[in-house]
Design a protein around this nucleic acid. Structure first.
Lengths: 203, 203
DNA sequence: GTAATTATGTACCGATAGGTATAGATTGTC
DNA sequence: GACAATCTATACCTATCGGTACATAATTAC
């Protein structure tokens, strides 16, 4: 146990509040005042616990992935379903999160990706976001490669292109949700998007 | 001819410079200093010619649509191609714009849509962006309805869902471009995305 | 030429940005 | 209880935010 006065707030809860604010307003749309108000702490505590705005944002990105980004992939491994069904369940799980009534609309990573390429994001945050997207594609590529090995995908189809297609879909769904689309609409889009696998999925 | 001293800069050229800045950095990531520097004019001239930051942004949105948003749809009406080919050409035209080396990556409307739902955009700008997206879906719906009437689409397919699917695709492509995808990757995604029409396109 | 009109440049405004200094409060260690 | 360590509250910092006042410059109408 470290000595000294102990923190009067729950760090995880505060991080979650910060996440909501960044998720709603983006990095450059969020001020320290927005953060301290939402987190219920003052500036000193924020800086002591999290560093500064940039460091807090980077921790929020991690926290977001853990809380809302990592659970969907389990649908890809439920072997009682066909690959096409699993892909549909995976995307549907994401769509539910994107339109969750208790959360901001859309996806923090996607919105942050839209903030890339300008000068509004700190260098390190930009790198983290780029890496997250790269990892998503890499993960999907590995997954699809294995599916191909197990002959759930035809041997001639380009795995990497399919992974890119899936990420693009996720981005599109996220912005659509941001634009006000409801879950049912996103699910209809997913139905349509999955049809393109009719000829490449063999099981 | 109106009396008084005449403007020393080209309003259209200044608007284009402003467009680039907003396109790169988003609304809340752009400061008046960024704008005046890029436009090569000072604050007084900006306010005299365009109103204020919000009014300038709204004019930029219009200008952007005119310059980079309205030309793609012509591909939908080149009757020598099949509907599937025309859809592909339409999306490919957008993809070329999204990755144009002389322009910021991605799409101003899509990036602005990502800024929606927070408190970072002025009310009127939010309404304009929502309306632009609505008009895109409406346009696509009307187009597809006509294609269905001419029996290029099966009678049972849901036009509105396809229009939504196409808008979602555009969003996804825009964010992917923002994320660093090259034209070839976007074109591959489009190829994949268009395959889902194999069973609904009858001509 | 004079007046009216419009554009520009400079200086300025209050508010807020992100961040820090410092003093006081609260804790564990010894 | 003395001390060190940690957290918190208030005040403060400089820079920048979007926006304006006002004097001056340039142009047309008469």
């Amino acid at each position: 146990m470290s000595s000294g006065r102990q923190r009067s707030f729950c760090k995880k809860a505060a991080l979650e509040k910060a996440m909501i604010v960044f998720w709603c307003n983006g990095y450059s749309g969020t001020s320290l005042a927005d953060l301290t108000e939402a987190m219920g702490i003052n500036k000193s505590s924020l800086y002591a616990a999290f560093g500064n705005k940039e460091a807090l944002f980077n921790q929020v990105l991690d926290f977001y992935l853990e809380l809302h980004g990592s659970s969907h992939s389990r649908h890809l491994f439920e072997q009682q379903h066909t690959l096409q069904e699993r892909l549909k369940n995976y995307l549907s799980s994401i769509a539910r999160m994107l339109t969750d009534a208790n959360l901001p609309k859309g996806c923090l990573i996607c919105s942050s990706t839209s903030e890339l390429a300008g000068s509004c994001l700190p260098e390190k945050s930009s790198q983290i976001i780029a890496m997250i997207n790269r990892k998503t594609v890499d993960f999907l590529t590995e997954f699809l490669k294995n599916e191909q090995k197990e002959q759930h995908l035809t041997a001639d189809c380009d795995i990497n292109k399919i992974a890119n297609y899936l990420l693009t879909l996720q981005f599109g769904l996220a912005v659509s949700a941001r634009n006000g689309s409801e879950l049912a609409e996103l699910l209809a889009v997913i139905d349509r998007a999955i049809e393109c696998f009719n000829n490449t999925v063999s099981l």
